[in-house]
C-alpha cells in the first residue's frame, strides 16, 4: 500500500524536520505573574498545551506532504473480461507499398488508393481502438523480424508504433522468423487469456521443413491460435485455389503456406482481403472468434493527495488560530 504512494518532489520531505519545532517552542507569549508558584497545577491546561503542540506538528507535516506532491501512483486493477492476447505480425516488405491493384502508389492518388500497408495500418488501428480489453503487441518483418511492442493495453503506444511502420525496400522472407519471435514472446509466460497470432501480409514465403516442424511444436506448446489475413493484390494468386501443375512452394508460396498452416493443429483461420473493406471485415471476424474470457488490467489514473493535505493543513491552522484568539494578553484581576 505504501508503495502506491508517490511524491513529485521527495527532496521537499526533508522539511519534515521542521515538524519538531513545536516540541521546542510553545509559541505563546509569556506573561509575568507575581505569584506563579501559588497557581495550582492544572491537568487540563497541560493537556491543552500538548494538544496545541501536536496540532502545530501535524500542520507542518500536512503542509510539507502537500508541497512534496503526495499522490497515489497510477495503478492497475486486474479484471476479467472478454478478449484475447493478440500478437500482430505485420509484413512491411517493399510490396506492401503497392496498392491493391498492384501499382506502385503515386503520391497524388493516395487518398482514393491507399497502399496495402497504409490500409492495413489504418484498419489495425481501428480494430485495436475498438477492442479495449485485448492485449495487443506488434512485430514487423521484412528481411528480418523486428520486435516493436510487447503485449499492452497502451493504445497510444500501439498507434505510435503503427504510424511509423513504414515499408522497407526489402523482400518478404522472414515470415517464419516473425512467427517464431511472436511465439517466443509467449514462452514462459502464464496463459491468462486466449493467445492469437495475427499475421497480416501480402505474400507467402517458403518455409523449409525443419523450420516447419519447429514452428508447429512451438504453436502447440504455447497454445496460440493463428489467423492469417492475406492482403491479396488484384494480380496475386489466391491462397485457396490449388495452383496448376508444375507450381511448387517456390512459385506459389502463398498456397503452400496456407496448406502448411492448416497442418499446425491449432485453431487457424485464413482470410483474403482484396480491398480495405474486406480487410476490416476480416479483422471483425477475427475479433468475434477470439472473444474469450481473459484477464486484463485496467489502469487507475494517478490521484492527487496534495489537496487533502492542504485541506487538513488549513483546518489545523484554523484551530491554532482559534486557540491563539483565546489567548489572553494580560492578567485580569
Amino acid at each position: 500500500m505504501i508503495s502506491a504512494l508517490g511524491f513529485d518532489a521527495p527532496a521537499v520531505l526533508w522539511l519534515l524536520v521542521l515538524g519538531l519545532l513545536p516540541l521546542w517552542r510553545h509559541g505563546q507569549s509569556i506573561l509575568r505573574h507575581p505569584a506563579m508558584l501559588l497557581m495550582p497545577e492544572d491537568r487540563w491546561s497541560r493537556t491543552l498545551a500538548w494538544a496545541l503542540r501536536l496540532i502545530g506538528m501535524l500542520c507542518v507535516v500536512a503542509l510539507v506532504l502537500g508541497m512534496a506532491g503526495l499522490h497515489l501512483r497510477q495503478s492497475e486493477v486486474e479484471r476479467v473480461g472478454h478478449g484475447a492476447h493478440i500478437m500482430v505480425v505485420l509484413d512491411r516488405s517493399a510490396s506492401m507499398n503497392d496498392d491493391f491493384a498492384g501499382k506502385y502508389i503515386q503520391s497524388t492518388d493516395v487518398a482514393q488508393n491507399p497502399s496495402k500497408l497504409k490500409a492495413a495500418r489504418e484498419v489495425l488501428a481501428k480494430f485495436i481502438e475498438s477492442r479495449q480489453q485485448d492485449l495487443v503487441g506488434l512485430i514487423t518483418f521484412s528481411t528480418s523480424p523486428v520486435f516493436v511492442l510487447p503485449l499492452t493495453h497502451d493504445q497510444v503506444a500501439l498507434k505510435a508504433a503503427l504510424d511509423s511502420a513504414e515499408a522497407q525496400g526489402m523482400g518478404f522472407t522472414a515470415v517464419a522468423r516473425g512467427l517464431g519471435m511472436a511465439l517466443d514472446y509467449f514462452k514462459g509466460k502464464p496463459v491468462t487469456g486466449a493467445r492469437l497470432i495475427l499475421l497480416v501480409s501480402d505474400g507467402g514465403a517458403h518455409i523449409d521443413s525443419q523450420t516447419q516442424d519447429r514452428i508447429r511444436s512451438w504453436f502447440a506448446s504455447e497454445h496460440a491460435a493463428l489467423a492469417w489475413i492475406y492482403i491479396r493484390g488484384t494480380n496475386s494468386p489466391s491462397i485457396f485455389v490449388q495452383p496448376g501443375e508444375g507450381d511448387d512452394a517456390a512459385s506459389a508460396p502463398e498456397y503452400f503456406l496456407h496448406e502448411y498452416f492448416k497442418t499446425l493443429g491449432v485453431p487457424y483461420q485464413a482470410y483474403e482481403a482484396e480491398n480495405p473493406r474486406a480487410l476490416e471485415a476480416a479483422l471483425r471476424d477475427v475479433g468475434k472468434m477470439h472473444n474469450l474470457p481473459s484477464h486484463y488490467f485496467e489502469k487507475q489514473p494517478r490521484r492527487d493527495l496534495a489537496g487533502i493535505c492542504y485541506a487538513a493543513a488549513l483546518l489545523l491552522l484554523a484551530l491554532l488560530y482559534g486557540a491563539k484568539r483565546m489567548e489572553i494578553s494580560q492578567w485580569h484581576a
Binding site: A9, L21, G27, C59, V60, L63, M67, L317, L320, K324
Partner: peptide, 17 residues
Amino acid sequence: RPVFAGLALLLLLASYF
C-alpha cells in the same frame, strides 16, 4: 500550490517566535 503552502508554512513557523 506549493508556493502558497510554503509561505503559510513560513508564517506558521514564525508564529513560534
